[in-house]
Design a protein around this nucleic acid. Sequence first.
RNA 1: GCGCCCGUAGCUCAGCUGGAUAGAGCACCAGACUUCGAAUCUGGGGGUCGGAGGUUCAACUCCUUCCGGGCGCACCA
Length: 583
Amino acid sequence: MNIFNEFERRIAAALSGMAADGELPQGLDFSRVVCEPPRDRSHGDISTNAAMVLAKEAKMPPRALAERIAPRLHSKSVAKVEVAGPGFINLTLEPIVFEEVLRTSLAEGPRFGASTIGAGVKVNVEFVSANPTGPMHVGHGRGAVVGDAIASLLDFAGYAVTREYYINDAGAQVDALARSVHFRYREALGEAIGEIPAGLYPGDYLKPIGEKLAQMHGTHFAKAPETQWLPVFREAAIDAMMELIRADLGALGIRHDVFFSERSLSAEGKVEAVIADLKARGLVYHGRLPPPKGQVDPDWEDREQTLFRSTAFGDDVDRPLRKSDGSLTYFASDIAYHATKFERGFKQMIDVLGADHGGYVKRMQAAVRAVSAGAATLDARLCQLVRLFRHGEPVKMSKRAGDFVTLREVVDEVGADAVRFMMLMRKNDAPLDFDLAKVIEQSKDNPVFYVQYAHARCESVRRQAREVSTELDLGSAALVQADLGLLTDPSERSILKLIAHYPRVVEQAAQAREPHRTTFYLYELASEFHALWNKGKDLPDLRFVNQNSTSLTAARLALVTGVRNVLASGLTLIGVSAPEEMR
RNA sequence: GCGCCCGUAGCUCAGCUGGAUAGAGCACCAGACUUCGAAUCUGGGGGUCGGAGGUUCAACUCCUUCCGGGCGCACCA
């Protein structure tokens, strides 16, 4: 139940009525007409720009048009209609409207706020896709959390969402991984291997795999030529790394629906097929690229390559599909991969990437449009860096010798809730400072705690109410019967209205693919709830549990339960737990 | 040099796809615990929204151009 959508429909109906009556031209475009909560609460509950966006076409000054529209917006749920400012129409709703929203939220429970705007459309959200060469670091964690939250929001908004992970299990990196593991294998056999050579992966996390291979194969591969052991070691290493990564993701509560192997693409001839397809449409050619402008690269050589005409789709230069030795580029595989997404029915694709992949976005969007003949779109969400702190001091994250802070270490130290919440306290394209000490602090300075505590407080009030009044039924079926007209304090009314905003917040967060909006909303709701709770300290009549009036207590517990439900719902969307108590 | 992202209170950041007098938190100052959990709350000061033009009834938001920061820039993934 989204009252803003509801009133947009009503206004559109009113405008159509005016067109029918000749007060407005026929065939006006109402798509820019929106309803939103006014910035200033004294302006009412819902504000619409209808008169201002239609003024030009209607050939009327905005205020004059607003005065014509306003009378048509009266109804039994509207207490007041005012024309204000440059031509806003402000609606003040009857209190009963918000009481009805609360009843709906109680009745719908966890489904309150869900919408159908997605209409079952398939969306593919690809996120994490970390190379299977080691444990995930904190930056991967941000992409993981953002991607998962976007997926949850879209699901809640009625899309058919698939969470997907692309395994880069082809190419030079996994060969380097296999060679690194071979060193660890020889080490496990008692050989002195010295330093792991540059270009390989020196981290200790490969030791167990070396040991396992030593147990399985003995000395069989110790002196064998690389061509014999490489495929075996590569396979084992990738499997082990993916197991590690899945475990890291699992610790964050993240689960993908599909793990898609890059190697399977070339194995099944998908890459060659997609190149042939693009070639048949004149989008592939053999040619030369201009040298990069400005910066002089001493290694640059003029070469003929197989190129994809990505400039035909807005890219800056055409991009190579084959290296000079004829082998395929990563980009070629990625085109084939995104082509399979389209073949699998996804016309909306979202890739959550690190900011260092920003330069890759245009060519990939070009590729998606090419392979889908314009039917599919790719939305790339870039996540900026995460900087780790402890008590305000930077935590070293040097990448040398595998000596970086892993995601798992952070999750183990502060918990998945803190990691997830803090990752969503910023929009994805802003850098993020993450203080390991602050996020486990049990104080209002820690937003994670602050919001979870509000939820726990709701539960605490419910426990208290049950103790005081044994005949009070706190089930939602009973609470919807409460006389909500008894909620008359401005703080109570304010929270009722905030609850009514929730469906709009999550719908817009889903459409904008901006999960941080949910987090900010939750903080605001928690804040208002804490404020109301404290009001009861000065004014005992405002306490939720009222010894003298069961009906008042029932009404207030309905409000508390509504707050609890929305907090729980929003926390679930961002993947954070909603605890019953904080002790 | 080119492309993308960012620049909002002393600090960290929101700003609802162009709306009304730009908002939180921290920090600072002044207050509230015979309590449904003070692990919280109330009030206060604090701004040429990086600069300059432009589009419009309306610009923090869109366009152009500078300044300052981040990322990327054929044959890596």
